[in-house]
Each structure stands twice: as C-alpha cells, then as structure tokens.
Amino acid sequence: MIRIKELKKSFKTEEVETLALNKVNLHVEDGEFVGIMGPSGCGKSTLLNIIGMLDNPTEGSYNFAGNEVAGLKESQRTQLRKGNLGFVFQSFNLIDELTVFENVELPLIYLKENKASRREKVMKVLERMKIAHREKHFPHQLSGGQQQRVAIARAVVTNPKLILADEPTGNLDSKNGLEVMNLLTELNQEGTTIVMVTHSDHDSHFAHRVVNLFDGQIVTESHNRALEARV
C-alpha cells in the first residue's frame, strides 16, 4: 500500500534549514499495523503527515496504492485522500461548534453522500465507538476519552483503507488509552491498515512492526513476534 523511497523533507525558515526527514525508505503492506517511535523532534509527525498527504516531500518518491503522490498539487492530494484516509490526532481536533454527530458526519458530507446514508453510517460507527448516546453533545461536554472515540469514529466513518494516528493516547489516562488502542486493534483486525506514532512502549506493543526514527532517519525496525504469531 505504501512505498516510500529516499524521501527527504526539509523546512526552510528565514535563517535556517531543518532537515526533518533524511532518505527515509519505508514499505507498509495492506492490513499492517505499523508503529513509529523516536525521540521528540526526530520527524515522526512529519513522516506521518506526508503519508497522510497533508504535506509534500521535498525529495524522493511516495507511492500510495499505486499512485505517485510526491509533487501532486494540494487539490489533487485532497482528491486522493478523500475517503481513503482517516486521521486521529493527539489533541482530538474536533470542531467545537459542531455536535458529535455533525463532527463524524463531516467527511461524508465532503464525499457528497446523501442524508439518509450519512445518518445510517454515522449512527453505526457511533454505536460501535459506544458514544451514540452523546450524538447531540458538543465536544467540550465530553471527556478526553470520549472525544478521542469521536475522533476515531470520524476517521473510520468513510471506511478508509488507511488510518493515521499521531500519539492518539498522548492526552489520555491509561484506562482511556487502552480503550483507544483496543479499538484501533479491532479496526486493524477487520483489515484497515494503521500507521501510528507513539511515545509509549506500551502502545507500541499493539503494532506488528515498529519503526524507530532518529534525526530524520530510520535506524531500526523491530517485528513484534508475539503479534505476528497471532495474525
């Protein structure tokens, strides 16, 4: 699904140029659950954003499901992203002025689905995330764990092939964090590919494979034998 070759990303500000990613090579297959780890500032989020087509690489190639992404215009990236990708962030990033239902419904609106099918899909996923009873609430009326479940619901409502999660448990206590990890695992078991950035060793155990980044480069890759056996 993901073929990344010799990928470079540098940020230019007025004075300095930061090389956030340096010659990264990475393959992710359909159905995999990949964790990305590394010290702060090593380029994890940058890599995830490029995979998520929110950003363009400076150099190198990125092939997503057979499409070359590097060098695409913003509008083309949006087109390719729509419905294929779901995002989960550390800070939830729900829209404060929209209700739970409306937040989850948003991706479907941009996919121009009709109202009835939107309602059906949103309710289904909300039930699955055990948050359906809160559909009319606004984000600030929910706990962090509940908010993150809504964010996951929003990420999966379009049935994406790939879910990208940037420290999804970073703002949660361990109980809520575990719940989130279980949900992601469940989704993965149903066939969704997942790439997740994390700082937590605990969370990394849910991944099949962990990629370690240091200073913009992949230094090690470790396979989680226990999980692989389970698959």
Binding site: G52, F87, R154
Partner: peptide, 16 residues
C-alpha cells in the same frame, strides 16, 4: 484555524 485544518484533513478542498 483548527476548523479549517480539520475540514481539510477530512476532505474539504480550498474552494469549498
């Protein structure tokens, strides 16, 4: 800004 960011991530294009 956040709203714009979210909308773009979930599939909105600039014209929308």
């Amino acid at each position: 800004a956040k709203e714009v960011g979210v909308r773009k991530t979930v599939g909105s294009n600039r014209n929308q």
